[in-house]
C-alpha cells in the first residue's frame, strides 16, 4: 500500500512538475483572492484582524481547484480505469493522491503566508511559530484527505465542476474554523475588544487537537471508502 502510495504521489508531482499548471494558475489565483479580499474589506485594521480567516479561505478555495486538477489528470484518458484494471490497491492510490495534494497545498500555504504578512501587515508572534507549523501540517492533512475522498466521489461524473464545491465546502468547515482560531492565537489578532479579547498562544492548542481528530477520521474513512468508490466510477 505504501509503495503504491509513493509511486502515485511521485507520478502526480511529476505531472505537475512538467505541466506547471498549479504553479502557473492556482498559485496566482490564491494570491489574487488575497488582493480581492483587501479590496472588499477596504480598511487596513480590518484586514490585519481577519488575516488568519482570509488565509484559510484562500486555501480552501484553492483546494477545490487543486482537487479538480488532480482528478482531471486521472479521468482524462481513463487512467483511473487502467489503474483499477491493473489491480493497483485503491487505498494506495488514495494515500498517494492525498500525499501529492498535501505537498501542493504546503507550497501554496507557504506563499500565502508570505502574502498575508506582506499585504495584511500580519506578524507571527515568535512563540507562535510552532503553533503555526503544527496547525498548518494537521489542517493540510485534513484538507488533502477530504479533498481526495470527495474528488474521487465526483470524479468522472457529469457536472462535477459545480458539484465538488457543494460537497466539499460543508465538510471542510471544521478545518476552516479550527485552523483560523489557531492562527489567530499565533498571530495575536483579535486583541483589544470582542468576546475573545487578547488571545493567548495556548488558546490555539485545543483547536490543533480538533484538527488532528478531523485528519485522522477522514484519513481512515478515505482508505476504507476509496475502493468501493473506484469500483463504480
Amino acid at each position: 500500500m505504501w509503495r503504491t502510495a509513493r509511486l502515485v504521489a511521485a507520478k502526480d508531482l511529476g505531472i505537475e512538475w512538467r505541466s506547471r499548471q498549479v504553479t502557473n494558475q492556482v498559485l496566482p489565483f490564491a494570491g489574487l483572492t488575497l488582493v480581492l479580499f483587501a479590496f472588499a474589506l477596504d480598511r487596513d485594521e480590518i484586514t490585519a484582524r481577519v488575516a488568519p480567516g482570509l488565509f484559510w479561505l484562500a486555501t480552501t478555495f484553492s483546494l477545490i481547484v487543486l482537487v479538480q486538477r488532480t482528478f482531471a489528470v486521472e479521468t482524462a484518458d481513463g487512467a483511473l480505469d487502467t489503474l483499477r484494471v491493473a489491480g493497483v490497491d485503491p487505498a494506495g492510490i488514495y494515500l498517494g493522491k492525498a500525499l501529492a495534494l498535501a505537498a501542493q497545498l504546503v507550497v501554496l500555504e507557504a506563499l500565502l503566508l508570505v502574502g498575508v504578512i506582506v499585504f495584511y501587515a500580519s506578524h507571527i508572534r515568535p512563540a507562535g511559530i510552532v503553533l503555526v507549523i503544527v496547525t498548518a501540517f494537521l489542517a493540510t492533512s485534513g484538507l488533502a484527505f477530504v479533498g481526495t475522498l470527495y474528488g474521487g466521489l465526483a470524479a468522472g461524473a457529469k457536472g462535477r465542476e459545480t458539484l465538488l464545491p457543494l460537497l466539499l465546502l460543508p465538510v471542510v468547515a471544521p478545518v476552516l474554523i479550527g485552523a483560523t482560531r489557531a492562527f489567530e492565537a499565533a498571530f495575536g489578532t483579535r486583541g483589544g475588544e470582542g468576546i475573545r479579547a487578547g488571545v493567548e498562544i495556548s488558546d490555539g492548542w485545543p483547536w490543533v487537537g480538533m484538527l488532528a481528530i478531523f485528519a485522522a477520521v477522514f484519513g481512515a474513512a478515505g482508505v476504507l471508502a476509496f475502493g468501493p468508490l473506484l469500483e463504480e466510477a
Binding site: L149, L153, L167, P170, V171, A173, P174, I177, G178, R181, P206, W207, M210, I213, F214, V217, F218, A221, A225, P228, L229, E231, E232
Partner: peptide, 24 residues
Amino acid sequence: KRSAVLGLLAVIEIPLVHFSVELW
C-alpha cells in the same frame, strides 16, 4: 454505491461540524 458512501460520510461529518461549532 456512490450515494451510500456519501450517506455514511455525512454521518461522520456532522458530529465533527457540530463539535467544532460548539467549541466556537
